[in-house]
């Protein structure tokens, strides 16, 4: 005679996880054992209850996730792009250019050995070129920056943004935080 199986085994059987001979014997046992079949019914009730709970609607989530991914990608591309060449405060500024402002970039030529800060402090100096870029052309801006990454536009280069640039339109607090720069000499 087959004795009552442990309840944890009945629970596994209920989940369809006991097959073969064992599974058959349990099925057989349940036909004649009130206590075990009551336990299985109880599990069934619980499962029905769990599955009766209302499901929220998440259909709009994909757009939101994609939006966040796009945002994040823009920021990280920008940051990585800049960090390699130019000290951090100016870094995220590249994204700011994206918007509404007309920007001039002053490329400082010559063999300066000082860092960016010193460069900014004496930014009245020796410009090789001044490029004006319509503020709404981000891609062009990036392309241009890539080209200019060579030679003279190296670690000694300086970008100047208009002092009234508004950083908040991006709506990205991280970006604003990492910039903290309003075009003045002290970052």
């Amino acid at each position: 005679m087959f004795m009552c199986p442990d309840k944890s085994i009945l629970s596994a059987w209920f989940d369809g996880e006991v097959d073969g001979l064992w599974g058959d014997r349990i099925s057989e046992h349940l036909k004649s054992c009130h206590s075990c079949s009551a336990f299985v019914h109880q599990m069934q009730d619980q499962q029905n209850l769990l599955h009766s709970l209302p499901e929220p609607d998440f259909t709009d989530s994909l757009d939101r996730v994609k939006f966040m991914i796009r945002e994040k990608r823009t920021v990280s591309r920008t940051t990585r792009f800049w960090e390699r060449r130019i000290p951090v405060p100016v870094a995220a500024a590249a994204a700011i250019v994206a918007a509404t402002f007309s920007l001039s970039i002053n490329v400082l030529a010559g063999n300066r050995n000082d860092g960016l800060n010193a460069g900014l402090a004496s930014a009245g100096g020796n410009y090789a070129s001044v490029i004006n870029l319509p503020g709404d052309k981000v891609d062009e801006f990036f392309r241009m920056m890539e080209v200019s990454m060579s030679d003279e536009f190296s670690s000694n280069s300086i970008m100047e943004l208009p002092s009234d640039v508004s950083l908040s339109f991006n709506g990205d607090s991280q970006l604003v935080k990492s910039v903290g720069y309003k075009g003045s000499a002290s970052p």
């Binding site: 309840k7 944890s8 629970s11 596994a12 989940d15 996880e17 599990m43 619980q46």
Partner: peptide, 11 residues
């Protein structure tokens, strides 16, 4: 198996 069973019992 054990965790599912215990969770059901507690529930």
């Amino acid at each position: 198996k054990v965790r599912v069973f215990r969770a059901r019992k507690l529930l």
